[in-house]
């Protein structure tokens, strides 16, 4: 374990320490943004297990984000379920079931057809959320009106923001660290290498005895579970879940964050989440035409640095090391 992380261990520890300090040193607004970013980390890690490691571009991952959020909101409202651990497990379970079903169909195809099919499923889920008002609240979505128990502890006496910025923040940080380490272990495992092989050359992988459809399905389900857990964490931050999270623009955002940070590097998408969340907010509050900037940024990344920020940093590092 130590050996695996040793290369990145130092930076990882510094990053975790910084993240742990954020609620004490940063203004509330930035604490809020950091917390939102943390919740998005499992989302992009999940997306990238499918895209970066298995070579399948999902343009419908908003489905699983929304699934986690709605599972959480639904259970809290209708069954007053209050244990966050239970809510997270329930979101993971619903993603497991839906991911298995949707994935079973989607992994029959690859490349553009896979992207189109996932997009279609995301859109179907979006319309279901809008239509089944009794369960989903329709266009309005669902509001979460009370705070969950964290490890059985009741923090309801705290004002909303104090709850979010203290106990909930550290809870999310803890979950995200666990999930990130677990994902790192998975992609460095025998299974992870086999996924990369499928991405690189699926015909060869099949000739070597790897059941490529089965493995793509495993990857799909793991990806769905991660994204859904991210949704479960996000739901308490927004306190309001709406169908927009399943719309294709949200799926597009997930893709964008991952590409921005860099899909070729395990930590790339995590960088992408922070940069995107902070930048979007900064840009959206200063200029109303933020889409132009994001569109242009997307084009520049694709054309010049397909590996995103992480690739850019590595290039700069190598440049200085070489010089």
């Amino acid at each position: 374990m130590k050996k695996i992380l040793s290369g990145n261990l130092f930076f990882t520890l510094i990053l975790i320490a910084l993240l742990a300090l954020v609620p004490y040193i940063a203004p509330p607004f930035y604490v809020y943004l950091t917390l939102t970013s943390l919740a998005y980390i499992p989302v992009v890690i999940g997306f990238n297990i499918l895209f970066g490691y298995t070579g399948l571009l999902s343009f419908g991952h908003g489905l699983f984000l929304a699934l986690g959020m709605y599972t959480t909101a639904f259970l809290m409202r209708n069954y007053t379920m209050e244990n966050l651990e239970v809510l997270i497990l329930a979101s993971a379970l619903s993603a497991f079931i839906v991911g298995l079903g949707v994935g079973y169909i989607c992994v029959k195809y690859t490349r553009i057809y896979f992207a189109l099919l996932t997009l279609a499923f995301g859109m179907v889920f979006y319309t279901l959320l809008i239509k089944f008002t009794p369960i989903t609240g329709g266009d309005e979505g669902l509001r979460i009106t009370f705070k969950p128990l964290l490890l059985g502890l009741d923090f309801r006496y705290l004002p909303h923001l104090d709850f979010l910025f203290q106990p909930y923040y550290y809870y999310v940080l803890g979950i995200v660290i666990i999930l990130t380490v677990l994902a790192y272990i998975i992609v460095s495992s025998h299974f992870g290498l086999s996924l990369k092989a499928i991405k690189e050359n699926s015909e060869k992988a099949e000739a070597l005895g790897i059941n490529i459809k089965r493995f793509r399905l495993y990857s799909f389900v793991i990806s769905a579970i991660y994204t859904s857990i991210g949704g479960a964490l996000l739901a308490h931050i927004t306190s309001h879940v709406t169908p927009i999270f399943s719309y294709w623009t949200t799926s597009g955002e997930i893709v964008f964050m991952t590409l921005l940070g860099g899909f070729t590097n395990f930590f790339g998408p995590i960088i992408g989440v922070f940069v995107y969340t902070l930048l979007r907010d900064f840009i959206m509050s200063t200029i109303i035409y933020w889409r132009i900037l994001f569109g242009a940024a997307l084009l520049l990344i694709i054309i010049f640095v397909p590996g995103g920020i992480s690739e850019g940093l590595i290039r700069i590092y190598k440049h200085f090391k070489g010089a």
């Binding site: 895209f51 571009l57 132009i292 994001f294 569109g295 242009a296 694709i302």
Partner: peptide, 20 residues
């Protein structure tokens, strides 16, 4: 580039035009 990137490039253009 890979198909995925081509699709995303046109997605980037959609964002730009939307705001234009």
């Amino acid at each position: 580039k890979e198909e995925a990137f081509q699709l995303l490039a046109t997605f980037g253009l959609v964002l730009i035009f939307e705001d234009m």
